[in-house]
Design a protein around this nucleic acid. Sequence first.
DNA 1: TTTTTACAAATTGTCAACAATAATTGATAT
DNA 2: ATATCAATTATTGTTGACAATTTGTAAAAA
Lengths: 229, 229
Amino acid sequence: MTDNSLQLTAQTLAEQVFESLQEAIVLGEFLPGEKIRESELAKRFNTSRGPLRDALRRLEARRLVTNTPNSGARVVELSTQQLIELYQVREALEGMTCRLAASHMLDDEIQELSDLLDKHQQEIKQKDGAEYLRQEGDLDFHFRIAQGSKNELLRTALCEDHYQLMRLYRYKFSNRKGRPNKALSEHRMILEAIKERDGELAELLMRRHIRNARKSFEKFINERENQFK
Amino acid sequence: MTDNSLQLTAQTLAEQVFESLQEAIVLGEFLPGEKIRESELAKRFNTSRGPLRDALRRLEARRLVTNTPNSGARVVELSTQQLIELYQVREALEGMTCRLAASHMLDDEIQELSDLLDKHQQEIKQKDGAEYLRQEGDLDFHFRIAQGSKNELLRTALCEDHYQLMRLYRYKFSNRKGRPNKALSEHRMILEAIKERDGELAELLMRRHIRNARKSFEKFINERENQFK
DNA sequence: TTTTTACAAATTGTCAACAATAATTGATAT
DNA sequence: ATATCAATTATTGTTGACAATTTGTAAAAA
């Protein structure tokens, strides 16, 4: 993912607070379900409650925060079921994204995507690329495809809305055991389909890729449940 | 769509304003691209700028309003390209929705869906059901399927986010010439696939249905453009 | 001991005034 | 006439105070 920290585009205090608070939430500084007290946070960000409430509305739009009238805001807390639903939505959106990318991605973009996968292979081999970094790189693959689709609505939905949620729950989305290598080979096949400009195949492969990730996640959940029986 | 006007669930002033303003925008009381002046509207809704700004943020989340810092809010104005993008997103989301509905829709819900299509057939025959009503009914079909998917994330995305945008641009989404009858027969085929619990087919048919609507729209646009050459 | 009620404290919702920014107007120069 | 700049006006951004609501606490009742 391209650097989004040096966006000097925070025109207003509310936007600044939004960005900072979002980052804090996603990095786990607040626990899922934790209460967000307006005055407390306003003080932390050196602002008043107005801009802070504004920021909360924006975070609500991205589903990072849930609000209950007169009661207050909390950091979102996704159930297993909701995480599965998120996978299903991603399968649909990224499938379409990939189909469009096969048609609209520029040759340069395809080459960069190919380079990225080579880099990933190195990281997996060297075993150094810590899990965290590897995952961010994994997401990078998906975002470049969203970028390549030239559908701004899809790009926004995935890169700006879903992205943060996935980061927040990355420990749950993390690949187990042999997944990294398998995921990489799935990525390579998707890339090939895009190179061939075969949108139908590209969509099919991307959907299978996400479905596999979902199944891996469901298996993990089930195993953990059975552990206590 | 089931009646959403008698939601007495507007706990706060900001929510009330949000609902009222959304309805006003969708019903065309404000033109696309029109400037929204905070104080002016605050007066209209008998409130102060605080709750009104809150409402604007919510409308922004649903893409009914665009905001430019320090400059102000405007009613959204979708280009032809953006409308096409919207169709593409719908194709992906509703396709998945339909696949899930084939698995999870209750028998009762399927029966009601069947009844709805019979009603639509009557309305088309009698030529009385004004275009506006017919279209709302058309959307109703899609929402019931979203409801039937039992995926709350998908249902919200479609019924709450996309729904209002489609209503706002309904005159552009409206079916030309023979589309109503064709659309109805497409709906019937989708229903059959759901009855058979054939998720794969249901998805395929729904995607084709939305693709057809998009093509009809694109054709209309092209014809209108060539008219001026 | 548990439940209920009344009160107190904390928190969110709303408002109106003030500050900062953008849009407008009109004068001046080219 | 057109473009440029400065001053004015209008509009948005921000703040702190107040109102309404919820939450927490402790006494009273079961």
